[in-house]
Amino acid sequence: SLRNARLLRESNYLRDNLGKLLDHANAPIVVIGKDRELRVVNRAFLALSNASREELLGRDFLQLLPETERGRILPVFIRALRGEPTSNFEVRIPRATGGHSRIVINTASILAADGEIEGVIAIGRDLTELRELEEQIIQAEKLATLGQLAAGVVHELNNPLTSISVYGEYLLRKGERAGYESADLEKLRRIVESADRILKFTRDLVTYARPSTEEPAFVRIRDILEQSLLFCEHVVGEVSADIDKRYGDEDGSVYAVKGQLHQVFINLITNACHALPVEGGRIILGTHVDDDDHLRVTIGDNGCGIPAPQREKIFEPFF
């Protein structure tokens, strides 16, 4: 009896230590019974799902998953109950606060004292950040390809646009000498101005899309803002936004990479357009030199603003 008591104490000691080891492991771990009920959920899994232990224990694990995942993971569970392990199976786990975590799991069967299978253990690895990074890289590659295609199309447009601009200018000068009617001269003048404007836009677009080898230089912020506004003209036009320019009297030059400033201002102006009300939308562009000789650039709007839960993510790529 003494020997049995000692064995029981050692067994309880090992069981408690194993429980602590599982609970404090860095990897998300769950133990599932034969009836699909969750028996053990460790801290790493709780952190991944943003749920409490009380919310999870005893529940059918399939009910915790999106419907699209249930049919995929059920065969994995059945194979484990037959003694067939599974490795590197990726699954999405919903978070209590919204969204999903993505983990890859390895499963194996758990044996009872009599050698019968009584459950399944699943040990996972969090891939959420890795998958998000992969998606960002794919998106960046798509944008780079799109920029190259746009630059190629623009290059093909430049030749006919140049011809329109040159011959339009020729006809305008000829009309002025020949005394054409003022209405006809105005039409020719608009043709020339429109062609020049499109030419300027296409050249700036090629510069913007080209991989940056640009060195920092002194640039005039007001000019950069105007060029960025030209890029966004179609977006501004779609929302019928009024542009309120409040440029300071100072020269407002800074030492910077022009292309990077273009990108920043274009993104801010585009975001402002997306946030504007249906009617009465206004975007404010302003520059001002502070007393400490710092140039302040302001891009504001009268839109709805950024929801508080999303503000901490605004500097994440492609958010």
Rank of each mutant, 00 (worst) to 15 (best):
S11A: 09
R15K: 11
N17M: 14
G19F: 10
L22A: 06
A25G: 10
N26I: 06
I29S: 00
V30A: 04
K34M: 11
R36N: 03
L38P: 01
A44G: 08
A44V: 05
F45Y: 15
A47F: 05
E54F: 04
G58T: 08
D60R: 00
T68E: 15
R70S: 02
P75L: 01
V76C: 05
G83D: 05
T86A: 13
T86K: 02
F89A: 05
G98M: 07
H100M: 11
S101K: 07
V104K: 03
T107N: 00
S109V: 01
A112I: 01
A113E: 15
I117N: 07
I117F: 11
D126E: 09
L127V: 12
T128R: 10
E132C: 01
E134V: 11
E135W: 02
A140V: 01
A144T: 15
L149T: 09
A151W: 06
A151L: 04
G152Q: 14
E156K: 13
N158S: 08
N159S: 14
N159V: 08
L161A: 10
S163V: 14
V166A: 13
K174V: 06
Y180G: 01
A183V: 10
D184A: 13
R189V: 00
A195I: 06
D204Y: 09
V206K: 08
T207K: 10
E214H: 05
P216T: 10
A217M: 07
F218T: 09
I221D: 01
R222I: 12
R222G: 06
L229E: 11
V235M: 11
V236L: 15
G237K: 11
D242H: 10
D251K: 07
G252C: 13
Y255D: 08
L261V: 01
Q263V: 02
F265W: 02
N267D: 12
V289A: 04
D292Y: 01
V297S: 02
I299A: 06
D301Y: 04
C304F: 08
E312A: 13
E312P: 00
K313T: 09
P317A: 11
